[in-house]
């Protein structure tokens, strides 16, 4: 998608690009594109996310992007979006805002959805080539909704069940999650330039959110999804932090897959529902990213002693080098 956005920025005659990022994946992609196309690049990322997704920060910076740790609010994705909007209204003359998720003011939700639709088009074609038919169910994790919109668009006109999986965080009733549609805690509001279901209080101020996955730790959801959910066209479920950690162990050991913590949410629900399906039914899961970036979080979750002693060793080495 970042190549499409590069073409946009060029066409608009902009020299600089800015982007928000939660998990760092979109920031990484934008920084890569900027290096290749010669744009100045600034990435806004909540300070909490900078701390938990250091590998992506490392690559963004080494690709030449300036990574700004946003200290406002909850210091996560939503605050990074606010900061991008502030930058853009100030510097719109020479700056293009490459909003990563399918949220924000018009035309971003539609524009990002359209750019991401390549995922669904390709997945549909591959499925037909490899199995001769369409999948019965498609699962995707939902932060703002870009990867899910991307893959679901390949199947909107088909008799295929579409399931979006949100961040269940600490679970139902804890108010520490990112489940706008799967749980009952969100209501319709207008913020960050768009109208959708938000996790907010009665005054219209946003509630704290939580997820082990930085990319799903967000207050709102693509407005097209809110509409499709109200119409019963897309089903929404949530996966908790605990379920994600357990499922990740399973996919690593049994499938040789290391999905990102975000993507693992889709695996949780798919694996939970698979036993209720017929043997010959086909499940398609969108692995929106790889888990390499999550090595610190996963190592913590697994309480991996060897990793910890490696990191301790490294930190001893750096301390000794500094004298």
């Amino acid at each position: 998608m970042s190549w499409d956005r590069a073409c946009c920025a060029r066409r608009l005659g902009k020299r600089k690009v800015i982007a928000e990022t939660g998990a760092g994946q979109h920031g990484f992609a934008t920084a890569t594109m900027a290096a290749r196309f010669g744009f100045d690049c600034k990435i806004y990322m909540g300070a909490v996310d900078v701390a938990r997704q250091r590998p992506n920060v490392f690559w963004m910076e080494n690709l030449g992007a300036e990574v700004i740790a946003v200290q406002d609010g909850q210091k996560t994705l939503k605050d990074a979006i606010n900061e991008c909007m502030r930058d853009w209204v100030t510097n719109m003359e020479d700056t293009h805002y490459i909003l990563g998720t399918a949220c924000g003011p018009h035309p971003f939700p539609e524009m990002v959805s359209w750019f991401q639709s390549i995922i669904g088009l390709e997945a549909r074609e591959q499925m037909l080539t490899q199995t001769g038919r369409l999948p019965d169910r498609v699962y995707a994790c939902v932060g703002g909704g870009s990867n899910a919109m991307g893959i679901f668009q390949g199947f909107f006109d088909d008799d295929v069940e579409l399931i979006g999986v949100e961040a269940g965080g600490l679970g139902v009733g804890t108010y520490m999650h990112g489940a706008r549609l799967a749980y009952d805690d969100a209501s319709v509001g207008v913020a960050q330039g768009y109208k959708t279901y938000f996790l907010q209080n009665d005054d219209g101020n946003m509630n704290e959110t939580h997820s082990v996955a930085a990319g799903l730790d967000y207050i709102g959801i693509n407005p097209i999804f809110s509409h499709l959910w109200e119409q019963g066209k897309v089903r929404f479920e949530a996966a908790t932090d605990e379920e994600v950690k357990e499922t990740l162990k399973l996919t690593m050991r049994t499938e040789g897959l290391i999905p990102a913590l975000e993507s693992t949410h889709a695996f949780v629900t798919a694996l939970k529902e698979a036993p209720t399906m017929a043997k010959d039914e086909i499940i398609l899961i969108n692995q929106s990213g790889r888990g390499d970036k999550d090595i610190f979080t996963i190592a913590d979750a697994l309480d991996d002693a060897k990793w910890k002693s490696f990191v301790e060793g490294k930190s001893d080495q750096y301390r000794a080098e500094r004298g």
Partner: peptide, 18 residues
């Protein structure tokens, strides 16, 4: 009136909202 997502405000007002 304070709002949790004051995206039209600079640092001083954003902080005051918070």
């Amino acid at each position: 009136f304070p709002f949790s997502e004051p995206s039209a405000d600079g640092p001083l007002f954003a902080h005051a909202n918070e």
